[in-house]
Design a protein around this nucleic acid. Structure first.
Length: 305
RNA sequence: GGCCUAGUGGCGAAGUGGUAACGCAGCUGUCUGCAAAACAGCGAUGCGCCGGUUCAAUUCCGGCCUAGGCCU
């Protein structure tokens, strides 16, 4: 009989982590996180990372495996996750892949063979200076076929494509896939938009009270993560870091803060910046959930609950 | 009762005598090493209502309605 892997997907706040614990207990499994942000150490509240206590002795893999200072990518995830799967199967337990990053999950289970061309920071820096149009023209010159299918305005993809082409000197070939030889059971969690939005709002409020702002502040001040880096993480890290910056440039807020002399007090502040941040973040999370669903919808093997 | 100002897609908001920018929300979608990222597409046959002028009005004129302001 083929060995089995269970996959739990769904948009943010749909209850994946709890579900994974329940399933793990039932089938004698171990959880592999499939979340592009939970891999980073020190990013806990903002990513909704499960706590040791919540794990109730179920082993969890691929949490805290990277420094937030360094860039982590799908390819790295793919390697680590594949290794974890092998390891768990060898011990005759069931791997439970659980998370909201569709790309990571598909890359692992379908064995996507990404182009080997590594990231070339210098090259990227140079390409970054060009206009989007110039990037596209250059791509068209080197690989007219591929240029037909790429988003003309997507600088990030344009740059990566040029990175591959200029180092290999060959056109980009279609992606090869090598699906894992196991029985894969896909479970999708989606409570409906109404409920999900409520859950998102409620969870955001809780996290803000749990010290999420302090977490971001700590990452910037103590871990020395630049605002730009925090911005790139998106969602909570993006919007809270913007909020922290706006507070910094608002003289009244700084005064108020000093007189209070209480580090935690501002987390509950009801100043305009705070409210705006919360509303914007709320919207962004909902948008994100929609994008996640767009990805998952393509996979017809997912059984939705 | 009189005068003034405003009335544009769900909301906010441009605009012109020649057939409706844009932002937000919404919806659909893309995805070959940053994926919580990056990116794409789609919504008013219609500009409060009724007439008039004009080849042509959302844009000009008259009246009406509604909202806000002011006056007696």
């Amino acid at each position: 009989m083929k060995q089995k892997i269970i996959v739990i997907v769904g948009p943010t706040a749909s209850g994946k982590s709890d579900c994974a614990i329940t399933v793990a207990k039932q089938v004698n499994g171990e959880v592999i996180s499939a979340d592009s942000r939970q891999v980073y150490r020190g990013m806990d509240i903002g990513t909704g990372k499960i706590t040791k206590k919540e794990m109730v002795d179920i082993p969890h893999h691929l949490l805290d495996v990277a420094s937030p200072k360094r860039q982590f990518t799908v390819v790295q995830y793919q390697k680590l996750a594949s290794k974890a799967i092998q390891d768990i199967l060898k011990r005759e337990k069931v791997p439970i892949l659980c998370g909201g990053t569709g790309l990571y999950i598909d890359a692992v289970l379908e064995g996507w063979e990404f182009p080997k061309t590594p990231i070339d920071k210098t090259l990227r820096k140079n390409l970054e200076k060009k206009t989007t149009e110039e990037l596209f023209d250059e791509l068209k010159k080197h690989d007219p076929e591929f240029s037909k299918t790429i988003d003309h305005n997507n600088r990030r993809r344009l740059i990566r494509a040029l990175e591959i082409i200029t180092t290999t000197n060959e056109p980009i070939t279609p992606l090869k896939k090598h699906p894992l030889p196991y029985t894969i059971e896909y479970i999708g969690l989606f409570p409906g938009w109404e409920v999900l939005q409520e859950k998102i709002k409620k969870r955001l409020k809780e996290r803000l009270n749990q010290g999420m702002i302090e977490e971001v502040q700590h990452l910037h001040e103590k871990e020395k993560l630049s605002w730009k880096r925090l911005e790139s993480f998106g969602l909570e890290y993006r919007y809270i870091s913007r909020y922290l910056r706006s507070r910094h440039s608002d003289p009244e807020m700084i005064e108020g803060e000093e007189s209070l002399g209480n580090r935690r007090s501002f987390a509950h502040a009801q100043d305009d910046n705070f409210i705006t941040m919360k509303n914007d973040l709320e919207k962004a999370i909902i948008h994100y959930a929609k994008r996640q669903m767009t990805w998952f919808k393509r996979n017809k093997r997912i059984k939705w609950f």
